[in-house]
């Protein structure tokens, strides 16, 4: 089921929490929703799930607007809110049964679905406890289980891996990736490696505006511009090498990073690579090339560039 968001706007008092944003999410896609605190991620998610009303613009789920009272869109969505609110005084199984009943799972299938979710989310050992007796990680698993209990076509997860231990994080990420093959998933997170591990596409928003939208690779390319190489060459004076590198026609700029180790950062001219030229240069001069690494812009840098100020 596709989600289309068109010119969505939401104002709290004088502040625009979400400002005229539009994007699409397709079936079989995991969208990573990034942004600093207060950027409007949760507000957008709340509007998609129907918790708060839409001020301007429209959200269409499977082609039907959420403002259409006939659409019954909530049944297709599984939602894990921020901070994972749960009824702490309820036993896990009763709670899952309650959620399944509300989401219209057939009575005969409820037991089976609960068993499946308990297995999938690794709750087997704790299943007879009350939710309030569980540790944070297990509560998070209950939160995921309630979101998926009715096998929804759309999953909206607000920071799904907070509070999980590293093994659980890997399991949950794998689960999200697997689910994302057939379903539409939107997940928000602060953990940038998580986005790279799970998401097909990244959407960065800042102060209610979309500042980046694309796969991790395209974002990197956009942010990076020219190729930067880390180069280490032995058997010559640093100055000599620097001069020779500068003379190459694909090189735009050379930075001497460490004089003792002859370590350089070489920036190429736009759209060109200097790797072959540097190698040839070393061969010609009989220098030894001990390091040649392309410097990738980290997602953290992209995030900082786009969202600071």
């Amino acid at each position: 089921m596709d989600i289309q968001i068109e010119k969505l706007t939401k104002t709290y008092g004088p502040q625009k929490a979400v400002n005229d944003i539009s994007f699409d999410v397709k079936t079989g896609e995991v969208l990573g929703f990034l942004g600093p605190n207060g950027a409007g991620k949760s507000t957008t998610m709340k509007m998609i799930t129907g918790y708060i009303g839409i001020e301007k613009g429209d959200i269409r789920i499977g082609g039907k607007s959420v403002t259409d009272p006939e659409s019954n869109f909530k049944r297709h969505i599984g939602y894990l809110p921020e901070n994972n609110p749960l009824y702490l005084d309820m036993p896990i199984i009763d709670y899952l049964e309650f959620c399944a009943a509300l989401q219209g799972v057939e009575k005969a299938k409820i037991k089976g679905r609960i068993r499946e979710m308990i297995g999938l989310c690794g709750l087997n050992r704790e299943k007879h406890k009350k939710i309030g007796e569980l540790s944070k990680g297990y509560r998070q698993r209950v939160g995921l289980a309630q979101a998926m209990i009715h096998d929804p076509e759309i999953l909206i997860l607000d920071e799904p891996t907070t509070g999980l231990d590293p093994n659980q994080i890997i399991e949950i990420r794998k689960l999200i990736r697997d689910l994302g093959k057939e379903k539409t998933v939107i997940l928000s997170t602060h953990i940038l490696p998580e986005v790279e591990a799970t998401c097909d596409r990244i959407l960065i928003i800042n102060r209610g505006n979309i500042v980046a939208n694309g796969t991790p690779e395209t974002l990197r390319k956009q942010a990076q511009g020219n190729e930067v190489l880390k180069v280490r060459i032995e058997d010559a004076e640093a100055e000599t090498i620097a001069k020779a590198l500068n003379a190459l026609n694909t090189v735009k700029d050379v930075d001497l990073v460490q004089r003792e180790e002859n370590l350089f950062e070489v920036q190429s001219v736009a759209q060109q690579s200097s790797k072959r030229n540097i190698f040839k240069l070393c061969v010609d001069k009989k220098w030894v090339l001990t390091e040649l690494t392309p410097l990738e812009t980290k997602l953290e840098d992209i995030f900082r560039n786009l969202t600071v100020n």
Binding site: Y51, N72, K74, Y79, N83, P85, L86, L88, L102, Q103
Partner: peptide
Amino acid sequence: KTGTLELLLTKSV
């Protein structure tokens, strides 16, 4: 207060 209202109202209710 606990936020469960959000969870409840985003079910098909």
